[in-house]
Simulated assay, not measured.
Amino acid sequence: MAGPELKLDVNTELAARRTGMAFQRTRLAEDRTLMAVIRTALSLIGFGFTIFQFFQKLRDQNLVTHAGAPRHFGMALVWLGVLMLALGIAYHVQFMLGLRRLRQSMRDEGLIHGETAFPVSLTLITALLLLATGVAAIASMQFDIGPFG
């Protein structure tokens, strides 16, 4: 009787470990998704700010008399990037909280060990810093203040 019982324990242990690793893979996949959002938002913010600054400099040097439309387009790109980043951060936080709750409930039921840490995402911290930079760029562009004005 010890043989089949031992085999069941080994299979249960392997299943618990595989499930625990699946949680880690899911967490890393969500980090990669947030990195893709960061990459796209950074491109939008960067392009928009560059367009805005380019036409601002042309206007300041009196090389163009009316550069309103391109400047508004640049500002719209920055706004779009910041909005996209804010939504990406909100989705990431919501997803990760749900994943943590599910992992904790499975750990409480003894289905997984949950011995490995589930740390705060460095990708999320980077996204928050980029969001602050985007908001500063918008304030600079809108009110012609700060280091970007």
Rank of each mutant, 00 (worst) to 15 (best):
A2F: 06
G3S: 14
P4L: 10
P4K: 09
L6D: 15
L6M: 11
K7I: 12
K7S: 13
L8K: 15
L8T: 14
D9C: 11
V10F: 09
N11Y: 12
E13S: 15
L14A: 15
A15F: 00
A15E: 10
A15W: 00
R18P: 15
R18D: 09
T19P: 08
G20T: 02
G20F: 04
M21W: 14
A22C: 02
A22D: 03
Q24W: 08
Q24H: 06
R25F: 07
R27F: 07
R27I: 02
L28I: 02
A29I: 11
A29E: 03
E30W: 02
E30T: 12
R32T: 06
T33S: 12
L34R: 14
M35L: 04
A36S: 10
V37L: 12
I38V: 13
T40L: 06
A41M: 05
A41W: 13
A41C: 09
L42Y: 01
L42E: 04
S43H: 09
S43L: 05
S43D: 05
L44M: 11
I45P: 15
G48P: 00
G48Q: 09
F49T: 03
F49I: 05
I51H: 02
I51A: 09
F52T: 02
F52H: 03
Q53P: 00
Q53D: 04
Q53K: 10
F55C: 06
F55R: 01
L58T: 09
L58G: 14
L58K: 10
L58Y: 09
Q61I: 07
V64Q: 13
G68W: 05
R71G: 01
H72S: 01
H72Q: 00
F73L: 11
M75E: 02
L77Q: 13
V78N: 03
L80Q: 01
L83D: 08
L83H: 03
M84L: 12
L85E: 05
L85S: 09
A86C: 10
L87M: 14
L87F: 15
L87K: 13
I89C: 01
I89G: 01
A90I: 00
F95P: 02
G98E: 02
L99D: 03
R100E: 00
R101E: 03
R101K: 00
L102H: 09
R103H: 13
R103E: 12
Q104T: 01
Q104E: 07
Q104R: 03
S105R: 11
M106T: 07
M106V: 04
R107L: 11
D108Y: 07
D108F: 05
E109A: 14
L111I: 10
L111P: 08
I112P: 15
G114A: 10
G114Q: 08
G114W: 13
E115S: 07
T116Y: 12
T116W: 10
T116F: 12
A117L: 07
F118R: 05
P119W: 13
P119S: 15
S121V: 13
T123W: 01
I125H: 15
A127P: 03
L128G: 14
L128F: 10
L128M: 15
L129R: 11
L129I: 15
L129G: 11
L129S: 14
L129Q: 14
L131S: 06
A132C: 10
A132E: 12
T133N: 04
G134D: 00
G134F: 04
V135K: 05
I138K: 12
S140R: 01
M141V: 03
M141I: 07
M141G: 06
M141H: 08
F143I: 00
G146D: 06
G146A: 05
P147K: 01
G149T: 06
